[in-house]
Amino acid sequence: MSATANLAASAAAVSGTPGFLSPTGVEILFLLVGLLTLGAAITAVTTRQLVHAALWLVVALGGIAVEYLLLSAEFIAWVQVLIYVGAVVVLLLFGLMLTRAPIGRSPDADSGNRPVALAVAVTAAAVLVTVVVDAFRTTWIDLEDGAPQGTTDVTGRILFQHWVLPFEALSVLLLAALVGAIVLSRRENGRNGTGGDGDGDGGTGSGTRAAGGGER
């Protein structure tokens, strides 16, 4: 699929006539980081070592954060680093450890419908890349002129001027998710009823709660 990425990227470069053969430095950097991100993502979904999949996911999410920086969305890049690379991947590793994931290579990491999944993914990629390249062949992003668009100043201003109500609703949703995670972890505690399980469930609940606080 990285061959597809190369082909698609070169097709995208060919189709844009003004910058072809003289891409800007930002474009070259975006392309290189994009290839790294895509390779890490493909490794994360195909590797047979489960913990390595989580670690490759760190590379992919960090690459996406760099792409946000290159697109001048500075605040979102740091939020991505904080929440995804910081909280979500740690939570995923926590879950992998708690479900006793095998450390070495596990031969049954992929299910039986892998060829079907590959066919579906390749077909969707081909169709979407064709449509997207054809649709945005002559479209350019102006990154140089004008005011900066994604600094913390701008993002905070629009977030608390125009998006206050969704923001507050979202904090209620986070609270509900946090309470839900605690309830999910504690219900099975009451069902089993033994003291040892109570200890284990307390650990899980506090871990989820700590992660929820980090997300907030």
């Binding site: 994009g34 792409e67 890349v129 997207v132």
Partner: peptide
């Protein structure tokens, strides 16, 4: 920057 770069990257990641 050409818009097709981030769009194609997003498609492939998806």
């Amino acid at each position: 920057m050409h818009l097709a770069y981030p769009a194609v990257l997003a498609v492939l990641l998806f």
